[in-house]
Design a protein around this nucleic acid. Sequence first.
DNA 1: CGGAGAATACCCCATACGGGCGATTTCGCC
DNA 2: GGCGAAATCGCCCGTATGGGGTATTCTCCG
Lengths: 209, 209
Amino acid sequence: MPDPLIHVAIVEDDPEIRQTLALIINGTPGFSCIFSYADCESAIADLPGHFTDVVLMDIELPGITGIEGVKRLRPQMPRADFIMLTIRHDDEAIFESLCAGATGYLVKDTPPAELLDAIREVRQGGAPMSAAIARKVIRSFRQTSPSPLSDRETEILRLLSDGQHYRSIAEQLFLSPHTVKTHIKNIYEKLQVHSRAEAVRKALGDKLI
Amino acid sequence: MPDPLIHVAIVEDDPEIRQTLALIINGTPGFSCIFSYADCESAIADLPGHFTDVVLMDIELPGITGIEGVKRLRPQMPRADFIMLTIRHDDEAIFESLCAGATGYLVKDTPPAELLDAIREVRQGGAPMSAAIARKVIRSFRQTSPSPLSDRETEILRLLSDGQHYRSIAEQLFLSPHTVKTHIKNIYEKLQVHSRAEAVRKALGDKLI
DNA sequence: CGGAGAATACCCCATACGGGCGATTTCGCC
DNA sequence: GGCGAAATCGCCCGTATGGGGTATTCTCCG
């Protein structure tokens, strides 16, 4: 039978917040917080040895940031989930945290009950996020601006990004290589780029393909 | 003072589910469902004229799919939020829906109380997702496999994807253009590609840069 | 000690690429 | 009816690119 207790660790530089979090967690049946740290350096040195289910990680920390902390701790703690805590809804920080391996993302004024819900949720295979954060994450999938390219151009850009040559693109679309070249020139002008590499980058970044 | 009532529309081909959903919504104070459709075709023809806050959209529909439906309805209903309903956790469908403009994504066995919560949440700027879905979305930000590239190679790949030439890369890194070329040859071999365009595509796709 | 991988540097060569410039047809829209 | 955008096809030219080699140095690891 599995350990019913969820073991939580905290990395948070503000002593008051750190203690409040620990009190909330230890004061709730089913939760336990034995380890807490004021900075990533000590967490990295001490935490990997101890059994931990969930790490609550502040982002704004002196020295190593919480994002970098997750990046370093994760490989050593494959079974743990990381939930970021932050005061700001900084877009960059959100996506960097997710890339680093965070599974949850909460603003610091999350009420205690919701924080505990989030910890439960992350253990049950979810990805708890504050509402505004979730919206930003979801938004990031959308095409930001309407494509300036025609259908034909988009089609050719797609083949271009497959690494295909003028010639093979021309053959696939039953066109003269000259025509393909003209299209690509027009694509370059519309996207304000000067090479295939730049075009592919821009196309993927702006979700044009 | 704003209308306190949340106006919900439903697009769902199964008559039983459609009616059940409508009953749940109309049976709850603060919610109203006047419009419901069995397919996207009729929704596209009728819905844009009516005031709607939230559209519950089934994905698996005969004819036009729910994903395509969102793509077409969204531009005409900029103030509405779309929540997808699905039976399967199909990865492709999730990301296509989000790209199409969906703001929420729920599995069909979501209990009524949670469904209503989700509708409230999406109206308050959130992005409600079933736990397993949220986890998949968050996972998509992570690097899937460890990079086969050395640090130097990654650095050069980054400059390459900016559209820079051998020469300017060499100058920036204080290297001979020959060296840059050798690195790029090695990058191509490791990534199994044969051109800058392909390399950039793979690099961005696999989150190597 | 030996081997592998990484980083550095160089050579040759065919060709794909990007820029510049012009042209026709079709289609929709004012 | 004319104008612009899109799609099609064409030529010239210089150079960047990619593939084929070879070589040295250094470090890390078994």
